[in-house]
Nucleic acid binder design. Structure first.
Length: 409
RNA sequence: CGGGGAUUGGCGCAAUUGGCUAGCGUGCAUGGUUUGGGACCAUGAGGUUGCAGGUUCGAAUCCUGUAUCCCCGACCA
């Protein structure tokens, strides 16, 4: 992509109502644009990042047997009355035709439980795991912190259905491992810890995945020995690490980037979702749900990966692999060559000063920056610099593609 | 949802004991000079000051209502 053609330009002036690092940088670099409080447009650069995050999640969900579906954004209110959740204050209510009352879904248990019920009757049909990546709507009392807490946001939600609790437990652990793999691939694995939280009525614990960062909204209590934490609810009831019993837990700031929960029979009870076991006896279905918000993850990455000059994208979710700065009218040939080698490249072909191009490259935060210029030519090649490093090096043209490829492998 | 602050060209801001044609930066357009860390000069376009009422000879400025945004708190399957 040529920067001169890219929709959405960087800005020197930061919107004064950008309240957090992620909102400020993502807005300034034209990844997102706020429409109303807590509701954002994703511009081409931002959508590329979001899509990459979603695809990593999608791949890992598929690997653990999740089947992708797409459920609607709205449901009849009746389903919410069935589960008693129609009074939740985050619900957006809509008027349909006639007397129809609709709800914009803040989560999809009320949709997926009756859906699966239409196809699953026998123990032979279980277990089954379905997920979707879709926007959720929550009328938060106070939207804040850019992508971290919106009223409309991207969410991956996986739901699993089982013959009994043992099978639910088995799958729950599989999902837990998949989540760690996802954070690892996205580039926040080292900062993301399993956090024990209250399990509600049906299980001892549920688990959150919390990414440690100074700007985080949540305070969690970290065990220095096991790399697990407990949240505020838990610390009030038991003051020790659930894994090792350590009683010296350190309070740290974090952002919740995932939550997995054993629903048990809460929703299958409400919808009377039974199956026939091998003896032909009617049994209740056990359920789990597993959430992860790609847009919130994207905001969290920026909170974690930036410096004074801008964003520093982890390699697997960067909007492009290479940011090619063309100076002295050079760069077009290299741009074409990189494209032909299937390297995703953003080519700054604008007729403006070098300083402005470098500043924009730092702000946008693509991991690899190349400079094609008279100066680099005189030194025998192309300047190669990582966004995360201060120093650059000159690479001969013939070695450039392998240099880039090896960085990304 | 409670308390506080704000709303002026696209963006960031200035201008109130009520007073002239509402300024500046940035961005945008045109021309010229520049060209490795957000260059410079010149010219130009762009505003019924969030919206609706009211007070006044006169309102960006005062009053009432309303909408939106931000902050602190509560809330956060």
């Amino acid at each position: 992509m040529k920067y001169s053609k890219l929709f959405g330009k960087t800005s020197k002036n930061v919107a004064s109502d950008a309240d957090s690092v992620n909102a400020k940088l993502l807005t300034q670099a034209a990844f997102i644009q706020k429409q109303i409080s807590g509701v954002y447009n994703f511009l081409p650069l931002g959508l590329r990042v979001l899509t990459k995050i979603q695809n990593i999640i999608r791949e890992e969900m598929n690997k653990i047997g999740g089947q992708e579906v797409l459920m609607p954004a709205m449901t009849q209110e009746e389903n919410w009355i069935t589960t008693g959740r129609n009074t939740m204050d985050v619900l957006f209510h809509l008027k349909g035709q006639g007397d129809t009352n609709l709800v914009l879904n803040p989560t999809h248990e009320e949709v997926i439980t009756p859906l699966v019920q239409k196809y699953v009757f026998s123990y032979r049909d279980l277990p089954v795991a379905l997920y979707q990546i879709q926007n959720k709507y929550r009328n938060e009392a106070r939207a804040k912190s850019g992508l971290l807490r919106g009223r409309e946001f991207s969410m991956k939600d996986l739901y699993s259905f089982h013959v009994d609790e043992a099978d639910l437990n088995r799958y729950y652990d599989i999902v837990k491992q998949a989540y760690f793999k996802i954070y690892e691939r996205i580039g926040i694995g080292g900062k993301t810890v399993l956090t024990f939280s209250s399990g509600g009525n049906f299980s001892q614990f549920s688990h959150e995945f919390q990414t440690l960062n100074e700007g985080g909204e949540d305070t969690i209590y970290l065990c220095s020995k096991c790399r697990v934490a407990v949240n505020k609810e838990i610390i009030n009831t038991q003051k020790t690490c659930p894994e090792c019993g350590n009683d010296k837990l350190e309070a740290v700031k974090a952002t919740e980037v995932g939550n997995i929960f054993k629903l048990r029979t809460k929703f299958s009870d409400a919808f009377k979702f039974f199956y026939s076991d091998s003896q032909g006896k009617e049994k209740i279905v056990e359920m789990g749900c597993y959430g992860m918000g790609p847009s919130r993850v994207m905001g969290t990455v920026v909170e974690l990966c930036h410096d004074d000059a801008g964003i520093i994208w982890p390699k697997n979710i960067a909007p492009y692999q290479v940011h090619l700065v063309g100076l002295d009218g050079l760069g077009e040939d290299l741009y074409q060559e990189l494209l032909s080698k299937n390297i995703d490249v953003l080519f700054d072909d604008r007729d403006i000063g070098a300083g402005a191009k470098f500043a924009d490259a730092d702000l946008i935060g693509i991991p690899v920056r190349l400079v094609a210029s008279k100066r680099s030519q005189e030194k025998g090649g192309i300047e190669f610099k990582l966004r995360s490093e201060k120093e650059s090096e000159i690479i001969e043209a013939k070695d450039l593609v392998s240099k880039i490829t090896s960085f990304y492998n």
